[in-house]
C-alpha cells in the first residue's frame, strides 16, 4: 500500500474535504467491521444499523482523529462501543450472551433467513460452521478473537479496546482458537 493510500492518509484527506477518500476507506473496511458486528450480535439488520452508526461516527470525528494509534484500532474501538451501547440499551446490566440466549437482543433472529437458527442448524457449509462455532464461544473470547481476525489488531490493541489486561486478552485468544479448532475439526 502506498503512503498516500494508507488508512491514516485517507482519513486525513477526508478531514480536509475529500469525500472520495472516505468512500475508499469505507469499502476497504466495510466487510471486516460488519462481520465483527454481525458475528457478535448474530442479527443481520442490527449489524447493518450498527455499521451505519460506526461510519457516521467516523465521518463526524474524522477531524479529531489523531494518528497516534492505527486507524483500524480507532475504527474497531468505535465499533466495540457501539455494540456495547446496543447491548446495554436493550437491557441494562445484561451480557450479550444472556441477551442472545433468551432472544431479547435478536427478536427476529428466527425470522432472519441468513442467520436464523434454522439456517445455522441445517447448514453444513464451511461458512455456516464458522458462524455456529463462534456462537458457542463465551462473549469475551468471541469478541477478542473477532477483533484480532477481522480487525487485524494486536493483543495490546485488543486489551486496550476491551479494557482488559494483556495476559487476560492473550489467554482469551488462546482459548477461543482452541475451542474453534475443536469445533471445526469435523468440517476440516
Amino acid at each position: 500500500m502506498m503512503a498516500g493510500d494508507s488508512d491514516e492518509a485517507l482519513i486525513a484527506r477526508y478531514a480536509r474535504g475529500d469525500v472520495a477518500a472516505f468512500e475508499r476507506l469505507y469499502r476497504r473496511h466495510e466487510m471486516p467491521v460488519w462481520r465483527y458486528l454481525q458475528r457478535n450480535v448474530r442479527h443481520h439488520a442490527t449489524a447493518d444499523d450498527l455499521l451505519q452508526e460506526v461510519w457516521f461516527a467516523v465521518a463526524r470525528d474524522a477531524a479529531d482523529y489523531a494518528p497516534t494509534s492505527r486507524f483500524t484500532s480507532w475504527l474497531f474501538t468505535i465499533a466495540h462501543h457501539r455494540m456495547i451501547d446496543f447491548v446495554r440499551g436493550r437491557r441494562p446490566h445484561a451480557s450479550l450472551d444472556s441477551l442472545l440466549q433468551d432472544g431479547a437482543a435478536a427478536p427476529s433472529l428466527a425470522a432472519d433467513p441468513r442467520t436464523g437458527p434454522l439456517a445455522l442448524a441445517t447448514s453444513h457449509d464451511e461458512a455456516g460452521a464458522i458462524v455456529r462455532a463462534l456462537a458457542c464461544l463465551p462473549e469475551e473470547q468471541r469478541e477478542a478473537f473477532l477483533l484480532q481476525i477481522e480487525g487485524d489488531l494486536s493483543v495490546e490493541e485488543i486489551a486496550a479496546i476491551t479494557l482488559s489486561s494483556f495476559e487476560t486478552t492473550k489467554s482469551r485468544l488462546r482459548y477461543a482458537r482452541a475451542k474453534l479448532r475443536e469445533l471445526l475439526k469435523e468440517h476440516a
Binding site: 477526508y14 460488519w34 447493518d48 457516521f56 457449509d125 464451511e126 461458512a127 458462524v131
Partner: peptide, 21 residues
Amino acid sequence: WSAADTARPSESVATAVFANA
C-alpha cells in the same frame, strides 16, 4: 472458510454513510 460466507451488509448502509460523509 469465512470468505465463503455470502452474507453482506445492505447497500443502503453504504448509500446512507456516503451521503452523510
